[in-house]
Design a protein around this nucleic acid. Structure first.
Lengths: 211, 211
DNA sequence: TGTACATCAGTGAACGCGCGTTCACTGATGTAC
DNA sequence: TGTACATCAGTGAACGCGCGTTCACTGATGTAC
């Protein structure tokens, strides 16, 4: 179906950076079809390379998928960070609340626009990946960390009592994550956009009010 | 791996009710491995029947999976209904709120104890299934309907202003669903049980307070 | 009550498919002398 | 600057696998006479 890629053949033999190219191809597959669509053979096909070439860079299919998941998560974090950067700091209570709404809206919007990537980002399938929030260590922004920062601002701005800060991360995250999941391939899939918007605003109000 | 079942061979030739048996087998597969584990050949193997026999009762693998998904959803609804039935009616505000907490807790507990079934119940993969809440028509209880009933009680008991009733379903559902998804195979997979409990209580408080 | 027959649930054998993965290889690249 | 060589990224061919699905069949069951 996919026309065999032009096979640019770069410098005749060696590929520039096959690893990155495979992750990119996997990302496109995930974008179109979610984690199950990240098929090793198809990724190599798209890059214009023989299937087993992938084994120079990944131990097995799972390692490729893992890299794609991480990349998808980075895209989500990037979308959230961009939304925050486009806004002024949240010094006063209402501005801080607005930032919380904005970050939540960005999360849901990403899920709606990139359902495949969204599902892939959260599809580590309960591997050894984590027993807690997203693994620390990477320097880049992660969705959970961004949320935590916004909640800290909320406390600083006096819009959230410090004693309620503790589990606020998880509560807010769960609420927004759940809406995203219901809208993406879940029972609320196909909800009219304006209805989805209304539900989203309502949910964010419940969270802001409840915190 | 699975020892070939004793092949009870019922009345020598015909199977009692192969359709139901296949759904049961599929349910066990889903319980152990989620929707992807619902493999037609394996289901027939477990029932002790030749693979193509399934085609007398299901158009294809998708139809079998669909039946299994519905059965999984019914189990979830059953767990929630049982939790409600074990409680008195919610006439006064606090009792009504308590019922809301109970139904939410049942939802999350089901996800934790039966992750495979939970994921399967919500894995219709955005098929023609629905553009809105779970399909009406079936007489049995469904999770969304049960939640709606509890919210109605909340209004009757005076614990929820009627003008906020409208989108309360989705907001409450999303919050609880999100927690379940984060805990099951998501980033919060492996959270210590006591932490998960605390997070759950906190989330339910945010919802109750926010509504 | 007994016999002929239509139905149709399950059998047996086979198919093509795409997948992940392994093997021995080749030849361009970059380094050591 | 030129030549010999080690490295190792990508090749070519092949494997075994389990899957969903199709085909023509068989024989127990239940009905009509």
């Amino acid at each position: 179906v996919t026309p065999p890629p032009p096979r640019s053949r770069r410098s005749g033999y060696r590929h520039g950076n096959l690893r990155a190219a495979l992750v990119d191809a996997g990302l496109e597959l995930a974008r179109a079809g979610g984690p199950d669509a990240v098929v090793l053979r198809e990724a190599t096909r798209r890059v214009g390379v023989v299937p087993n070439a992938a084994y120079r860079h990944f131990a097995d299919r799972g390692a490729l998928l893992q890299a794609v998941c991480t990349a998808a998560m980075d895209e989500l974090a990037g979308a959230m960070a961009a939304e925050l950067d486009a806004r002024g700091p949240g010094r006063d209570p209402e501005a801080a609340r607005e930032r919380l709404r904005a970050i939540g809206a960005a999360y849901v919007r990403f899920a709606q626009r990139q359902p495949g990537l969204f599902l892939t980002a959260f599809s580590t399938a309960g591997e050894a990946s984590g027993n807690g929030p997203p693994e620390p260590g990477t320097g880049r922004p992660d969705p959970f960390g961004l949320l935590g920062r916004v909640l800290d601002e909320l406390v600083t701005a006096g819009a959230l009592p410090p004693d309620r800060r503790a589990d606020a991360d998880f509560a807010a995250w769960a609420a927004v994550h759940g809406l995203a999941m219901l809208l993406v391939g879940g029972p609320l899939h196909g909800l009219a956009p304006e209805d989805a918007d209304r539900v989203e605003r309502h949910l964010l109000e419940v969270v802001v009010r409840g915190l």
